[in-house]
Design a protein around this nucleic acid. Structure first.
Lengths: 193, 193
DNA sequence: CTTGTTGGTCAACGCTTGTTGGCAAACGTA
DNA sequence: TACGTTTGCCAACAAGCGTTGACCAACAAG
């Protein structure tokens, strides 16, 4: 035992610095994308030396990986009532996005970096498609239906949080749920058009 | 008169080189985004010296601007029959995207560059909103309705052409029109939910 | 007090980038 | 033939990048 924390891993004196770096990294990545968010700029924001970033996160790729680690947690989502699943999903993603700036970072970087793109794809593959399989009419259509849902949600995120079109930013959360909810509902549960 | 072309501007010997540069630039920008698409790499693709790019396009920003000059041409779109406007729009954008690789470039760069983002916004502002005003029920709702359409179309473009999710790439054009058509139709013409 | 470990700074490295200016060949015109 | 313009290549510049290793201060354990 070392002191302040009572189990698992000792609390190190550098944890505060680590957290500061990570916070600065998330902001910079979200604002500028991968290339323009330089280690030097992140270090300047965190008020430490660039070499500390290397010591704690190995290299720039490692820092980015640590900065965008996030789980959308779709499996834990209540699937009932089934005729509300569309609205439930929209609400879920909306709060997820409003709370975590790292999602914007992931999206900005994913536009050019295959690794980040694959990270986004894994959410579709491991969480959205299984969900579509559970609530949809024909299991073999689940990939297509889930892909349509992904494009809907990511499209809103793109115009609202990345490109920041004023007309999209001005939409209220209720408006978004009211408009996109039925769309997802149809993509997931409606018979093939 | 100088020869081969009979009016307006003389055909210069360098026009071929200019075009080669532009083609290479479009490919690189679409594939790699702004920062990773270096002038040196573009010049290598075009098999000329990097300094030529500067001479003909001023600087990197000028080259990009020239590479992504494009007009979606929404004003010329037939708006009748009104109950088909959704499907018409989807079909229009789909062919536009399949034919012009520079749209992918614009999107990749827009994720991090405000100038490119504004270029995309101008399409929403100058073309989509007026169209929504013409076909929609309440003119003051046109911005919101058009923004939803933009997010729908750009969402598909993102997952299909930028991130290249297999489940989105595998959708056939007919499937896309059948699923997204009714969505846009509702966003544009349905009463407020 | 001594010793080993941790947290942090500093200066430099090798490399790539956008950009510039000088020079040589090809060309059109007279 | 001679001459100005166009087209192109070459070599170099300054700046910025990620990354490294030497070095110092603070701390904890014996």
């Amino acid at each position: 035992m070392t002191g302040t924390t009572e189990n698992q891993q000792a609390a190190r004196r550098s944890d505060a610095t680590r957290a500061t770096i990570l916070a600065a990294a998330r902001e910079r990545f979200a604002a500028d994308g991968y290339e323009k968010a330089t280690i030097r700029a992140i270090a300047r924001d965190a008020k430490i030396d660039p070499s500390m970033v290397m010591r704690y996160y190995g290299n720039k790729a490692g820092l980015f990986a640590a900065a965008v680690a996030i789980d959308p947690g779709l499996p834990g989502l209540p699937v009932e009532p089934r005729e509300e699943i569309g609205r439930t999903l929209v609400r879920h993603f909306l709060t997820l996005w409003e709370e975590n700036g790292e999602l914007t970072a992931l999206m900005r970087v994913g536009a050019t970096d295959p690794t980040a793109a694959e990270r986004m794809h894994s959410v579709l593959r491991d969480q959205l498609i299984p969900l579509a399989r559970r609530v949809g009419p024909a299991p073999e259509q689940a990939p297509a239906r889930a892909a349509l849902c992904a494009s809907t949600v990511l499209g809103l995120a793109l115009t609202r949080y990345v490109l920041r079109f004023p007309e999209s930013v001005d939409l209220s959360p209720e408006q978004i749920v009211d408009w996109l909810g039925p769309t997802l509902q149809r993509y997931l549960t409606a018979p093939t058009p």
